[in-house]
Nucleic acid binder design. Sequence first.
RNA 1: GUGGGAGUAGCUCAACUGGCAGAGCACCGGACUGUGGCUCCGACGGUUGCGGGUUCGAUUCCCGUCUCCCACCCCA
Length: 425
Amino acid sequence: MLKAVRGTRDLLPPETETWNFVDAAARDVFRAYNFHEIRTPILEDLALFQRSVGEETDIVAKEMFAWEDRGRAASEKGQWLALRPENTAGVVRAYIENKLWDRPGVQKLYYIGPQFRRERPQKGRYRQFYQIGAEIIGPASAGSESPARDAEILEMLATLLDRLGITGWTLQLNSIGCLADRARYNEALRQALASIKDKMDPDCQRRAVTNPLRVFDCKVPEDQPIIEKLPRISEFLDEPCRQHYAQVKEILRSVGVAFEENDRLVRGLDYYTRTAFEFTHGALGAQNAILGGGRYDGLSEALGGPPAPGIGFAIGEDRLVMSLGKSPEDVLRKPDVYIAPLGAGMNKEVARVARELRRKDLVVELGDESFRLKKSFEIASKLGAKYILISGENEFSTGVFALKNLATGEQVQVPRDSLAAAIQR
RNA sequence: GUGGGAGUAGCUCAACUGGCAGAGCACCGGACUGUGGCUCCGACGGUUGCGGGUUCGAUUCCCGUCUCCCACCCCA
């Protein structure tokens, strides 16, 4: 039997109703902050991710679906393509390519769509997964660098989670410094680790060499005392960076968004600078990050664009749906009315009635003239329809229909032109 | 990529130390004419994930493989 490929899955009704509910809530909240949707290709030039996410990151080094495309002629070399493992790179590429900096103010863009990473699947981790993300990017003169933008993004996220009824989340906040700070800090960290890393767990030692920042993610209990003594990024922030971070926190306090400072929070993608954050949730197992993001002031230039500081985030929609208390039934709109045609020739008559009711924005399910009335009732009940409309020759000849409320059992006679009103009541 | 657990009907699960693969729920039909839910009766439903091996005989034991789950790695 042919099956969905590893790490991918079908989203079926009624669960898709929950997904649509989440999408709609996100679009609604984003609109209030004047964000607009961008749709970028799922397929991009491999080099885009190598230059933005970073060659040395796990995502690029070993988790991408990438292949060499065929050239136009058999002899011609093809282009290396990749399925996008995240969407920020694509958005910034589009910002540059379409000269969006020529538009007034900052660009506030959001996206909803599938991303691909060739990882080992697990709960809350799929090879095709879905992200809802947003970016603020633009010239510094338009205010893209302002801590007000960082705070606006974080406050918007808190609003969205509240709106979805998700409780028990925690906002973890840190500043990982400007590019220069990071370079100095990395060096200091390397030196500090050089003498003591032998005492650490092998896995943590490996990190000390490949990516010193990642040492802070080490969970081995015995190594914690060593990690505690390492220099912190907060000691290396230069004055402007420190000020920036302080202002982000001030605004958050002002608008009442709770956060926890976590100076061990580091983010994996190379392009991050200054503000870094994660929202975590308890009910997700090992994959406890429901969303993550941060500032990426140098990304546009790294991709050959103009200076364009930016900040953004990505929500793992699969994980968001998992942490959502709502079941599909809570958001499922069931049929307002089930129309039961009775007898030969009635299909063509009820089709017109259904059309009339649907144009009044009612959800209508249509039976078939071959069904016995009893069967129609059974189906209508199972579908959870509010009403059943009995439509036989009598009804069409008199113009008065039998409308029965399936929950209360109350049945009334209703003239055809009052049906919609009676059902909506 | 590493380590561990699990795959039996649409779903949730049984099947003793190897001996004819079952139940509940769901689905479909019926309990006579244009009135559902409850109840009763009946039918349908299987390459026991897939491929090898051992055996008179394998859902059961062994090997391989695929998928999911848990942890690691990493991340959303």
